[in-house]
């Protein structure tokens, strides 16, 4: 035992332990203000502490990343797959929403139409360059007949050219052979419209009067002077107006109000229709473009 106390390492360790214990007891009061020496020490070591802390955080993050790397790769692949799924789902939803809006509009149109209608689906378009026609899945057994007028929520689509028992062929108003009488909805000025082979989707109108009041954005509707179509159905909006060199002919370019590129379901108006269809009352659109009342129109 004597020898133990004589060992300087043991005595030194006990002294250091005792000093440390005293230090711990002395500093155990957290509310105590720092002494001068303590303050100096704390301020001296604070930057080092911050550096060590940063290093620890970064090292820890890297180690954690390395440890989790295989899981992260798997998770990344899964998330990419999920993202693709969601993007597809979003595209599907957009399509369904557009389709739904179109069908709701069509349903409202059908309900308000003053004549009997036959809803039909477009199942094919003419494959060639020379005709603008669609085939629909309703035919003579459903009541579809030659000359029946075909409309969509936007307005006029065309008319039935021929039928079989279960199908019918519809010539679109964008066909080069689709001559129809039109008039400016706001002014009542009339003209003849025909589709174009080049730049499909535009309709050229030759106004009967060189002084016709028509400008860009105006709505043109079927004319009351034509025989093939009832008056008042929207045909197209004016894209531009041209006057030929002689100044006698005014040509107007229209874009159809019915979306010809996305015809999926359409309405066939049954039988020959006489008189005017008041489209603004039916669809709620184009109200500001109603043609002015003419003499003899009032009941």
């Amino acid at each position: 035992m004597k020898n133990l106390w004589r060992d300087r390492r043991v005595v030194g360790s006990l002294v250091i332990t005792l000093v440390l214990l005293l230090l711990m007891v002395w500093t155990s009061d957290s509310g105590r203000p720092y002494g001068r020496l303590e303050r100096f020490w704390v301020e001296l070591t604070a930057p080092l502490g911050r550096v060590l802390d940063d290093f620890g955080e970064r090292t820890g993050g890297t180690v954690e990343y390395l440890l989790k790397y295989p899981t992260l790769v798997e998770e990344n692949v899964e998330l990419r797959g999920r993202l693709t799924e969601l993007e597809t789902l979003e595209a599907d939803l957009e399509f369904l929403e557009r389709e739904n809006r179109y069908l709701v509009d069509l349903l409202e149109l059908e309900g308000r139409m003053p004549v009997d209608t036959i809803p039909a689906s477009v199942y094919s378009r003419s494959p060639g360059n020379w005709t603008r026609e669609v085939m629909i899945d309703r035919g003579s057994v459903h009541g579809v007949a030659f000359g029946d007028v075909v409309v969509a929520p936007g307005g006029l689509v065309g008319r039935v050219l021929s039928t079989t028992a279960q199908t019918a062929r519809v010539m679109l108003i964008t066909s080069s052979d689709s001559g129809l009488g039109v008039q400016v909805a706001s002014s009542g000025d009339a003209g003849g419209a025909e589709g174009q082979l080049l730049f499909e989707g535009r309709i050229r109108v030759t106004m009967f009067s060189p002084d016709a009041r028509v400008s860009r954005g105006d709505l043109l509707v079927t004319s009351e002077f034509g025989e093939a179509y009832p008056a008042g159905i929207p045909v197209g909006r004016v894209l531009g107006v041209e006057i030929d060199e002689s100044g006698l002919i005014r040509e107007v370019w229209l874009t159809p109000t019915a979306d010809m590129d996305r015809l999926s379901t359409i309405l066939v108006l049954e039988g020959p229709i006489r008189g005017r269809i008041n489209w603004s009352e039916i669809s709620g659109a184009f109200e500001s473009d109603e043609p002015p009342s003419r003499e003899g129109d009032s009941p």
Binding site: N129, W130, T131, S175, S176, D177, E194, L198
Partner: peptide, 28 residues
Amino acid sequence: ELIRAVAVRLSGMELGPVHVVALISATS
């Protein structure tokens, strides 16, 4: 395309000026 255009024209449909028909045929 030219033969198709002639056939469609003979069936009674209006196609427009010859140069447009030729232009469409060439583009197609």
